[in-house]
């Protein structure tokens, strides 16, 4: 159990309890251009450094969380509930 992921509800947990979905991207509007949707669904950057990802705490609280992680050092800068993130973004 090497890498620990901080869950905003459960605290530090090993990565085995989680499922990773991938980059947390902003979803295009429903009527957006096909090109934007193609980007959103298929195209991914592979950044070296800071990265926002969706993680699902499958064997814990079963909440989706957004983890801000460094892909080089696995240093986790922040982790919050995906619902809270969506709400705070809707406000801005």
């Amino acid at each position: 159990m090497a890498s620990l992921v901080p869950c905003p509800h459960c605290g530090q947990r090993p990565k085995e309890e989680f499922t990773i979905k991938g980059a947390a991207l902003a979803r295009p509007a429903a009527d957006a251009d096909a090109v934007d949707w193609f980007d959103y669904v298929y195209l991914r950057d592979n950044p070296r450094g800071a990265y926002e990802e969706y993680w699902h705490h499958t064997s814990g609280c079963r909440r989706w969380i957004v983890v801000t992680r460094d892909t080089v050092t696995h240093e986790v800068a922040a982790s919050r509930d995906a619902a809270d993130r969506a709400r705070s973004e809707a406000r801005t």
Partner: peptide
């Protein structure tokens, strides 16, 4: 707490 015990949630 909900957690894994071995491979079982």
């Amino acid at each position: 707490a909900v957690t894994l015990i071995g491979h079982i949630a």
